[in-house]
Design a binder for these strands. Structure first.
Lengths: 330, 330
DNA sequence: TTGAAAGCGCTAACAA
DNA sequence: TTGTTAGCGCTTTCAA
């Protein structure tokens, strides 16, 4: 079953032309005499020749591949990002080299360093501190970063987490909630923005904020933190979770503990993952436009590669999605 | 900011040795005199040299990359497959080149043909008919296929859908359900197996099966099909859905229509996606071991590449996950 | 243990 | 329009 894959030389020989001519024909680089064109065409068809992208890439330095690094593909937020980015890549004739760092920061650097040599550009979602990421810039490869950057000179795409959080908190306050709590994930960069957004809004309304933290941005952590939050002397009347996964876990556990959502406690999250629609009650959330973020990031990195103009920073507007997991208190 | 990336020649020159020596050193191909080894080592560190994987690949013909093609990355079933496959790949020093065909069969062939030249092996989840896939074999690239194959000579990994469906049906029958229906997705290969599994079990129990079909394996389709199923002269007392997404959509819509799950109708799906735990009621399902399928497929393709022995066909045992969306009728 | 030399399959000047 | 030639950065005989 071993086939001897035909090379450009085989085609050239069989067609009685030079390899350069075949190369130009394959790349549609110019016009040819009808005779030559016909011969080459038929020889290629007959031999089943296809150019070797590796050899091609080595010379041109372009791989038509974009590296995309995410923290955990099984989190629907990242899945949507991949979905959006992949669609745009495909439309432009690129493929996506996926890297799932599995929430393991130690993996990121070696993985990305290796990646950078095999792709034309990269899109990076990282949990590293900004000051620890200078090496990414040194990689000297068009790279788009997810999130806000203060010093690092990298183009980026970010959701407006502070704004989204503020909007959500504003809504909870307007609904008459008095004892609002935040269940965060402090290892994330975005956690602080969300926390600040909620806190700023509550402060403006003379309300205090209780905070809790988790070890991972997962439903299981939401479940685990439920009893500490709910079974104290008094419990919050509204809980903002770092993301929808946590909110899902929390709601489930709260119901097991005998609490009613939203009667006893309103619950909300971030991301607007599709599954928030299918819980009972459906989940109020801040739509960070994950898929759009993926689209924007891919468009940006492709623009950079093509030398087209593009903004250094793209901020994506969040949207508040109101569902039945939050309810007016008066 | 343009850095002149050092090549093996730069290293050789700076170290006063030949490129061949550097190459051997980098690949740890043999022993060296301490002096040479030390020099090369320090020069490499100083120049920040890293070998160009493209050039390397062109010569060796190995890219350390596995292509993985799925139908829709936003379906958690596929997400889990990717997760499992990616983990194994990483452990073996490989990366995953992801292809999301977006449930578009026309895309598969060109995408896979292009992919095949850039990877050492492929793992393919397809919606194409077996007889239309001979070209995959012709690609002459180690390829593992997801699903059962009758004629095509390709190693494969499959869930035992018939078995899982039978188990689920058996359970529903044992619970005393009399009017069981199946909400399928006939475009999928696996649909027939699941349908047969349910039907075989019901036939063995002298029970009839009503069937319905959908256009896509999605929650939205589950929602859409709810009224046709529930608002006829009589409705089923149990519904088996093609997958969990459909079941989630169906349950939500049924509740909106005023039905209680499982009191009015038991509902079950396939895949055991993590979100089935967070609905009310939580979803009974057949765990097809998606992540394990990804692991098995990646292990298989790597084994083939390494020339290690591996079975042509791996069948993965399903597991019935009982939750509150199904209930005894007597 | 080390190096010289011949490519891998292709592209990119430049000439013809 | 077509061909010649010189590599891209690396590995791999084979000889020293």
């Amino acid at each position: 079953m071993k086939k001897n894959i035909p090379t450009i030389r085989d085609v050239a020989a069989a067609a009685g032309v030079s390899t350069a001519t075949v190369s130009k024909y394959v790349n549609g680089a110019q016009k040819f005499s009808p005779a030559v064109e016909a011969t080459i065409k038929s020889v290629i068809a007959q031999l089943g020749y296809r150019s070797n992208p590796l050899a091609q890439s080595m010379i041109t330095g372009r791989t038509k591949t974009i590296g995309l690094s995410v923290l955990d593909i099984s989190n629907p937020h990242f899945t949507s990002i991949v979905k959006g980015a992949n669609r745009v890549a495909l439309e432009h004739g690129y493929t996506v080299l996926l890297v799932d760092t599995d929430e393991n920061p130690d993996r990121e650097r070696p993985l990305l360093e290796a990646l950078s040599r095999r792709v034309d550009g990269m899109i990076v979602f990282s949990r590293m501190q900004e000051q620890d990421m200078d090496w990414v810039v040194q990689l000297d490869k068009p790279t788009v970063y997810f999130g806000r950057l203060t010093d690092l000179k990298l183009p980026s795409v970010s959701s407006d987490d502070h704004r989204g959080a503020y909007m959500l908190a504003q809504h909870l306050v307007a609904q008459g909630h008095q004892r609002i709590a935040y269940l965060g994930f402090s290892r994330s960069r975005r956690d602080q923005e969300r926390l600040d957004g909620v806190r700023d809004c509550l402060a403006a309304n003379q309300l205090a904020l209780a905070t809790f933290d988790t070890h991972s941005p997962s439903a299981l952590e939401g479940e685990r933190m439920c009893s500490p939050i709910m079974l104290g002397a008094s419990h919050p009347d509204a809980l903002v979770c770092y993301n929808d996964l946590m909110a899902l876990g929390f709601m489930k556990e709260a119901q097991i503990l005998g609490f009613r959502v939203p009667a006893d406690i309103s619950v909300a999250g971030f991301d607007n993952i599709q599954f928030g629609r299918y819980t009972s009650p459906p989940l109020t959330t801040v739509d960070l436009q994950s898929e759009h973020m993926g689209v924007a990031a891919m468009e940006k990195v492709l623009a950079i590669i093509d030398g087209k103009p593009t903004k250094d920073f793209t901020l994506i507007e969040p949207q508040l999605i109101l569902r039945a997991s939050t309810v007016a208190r008066r």
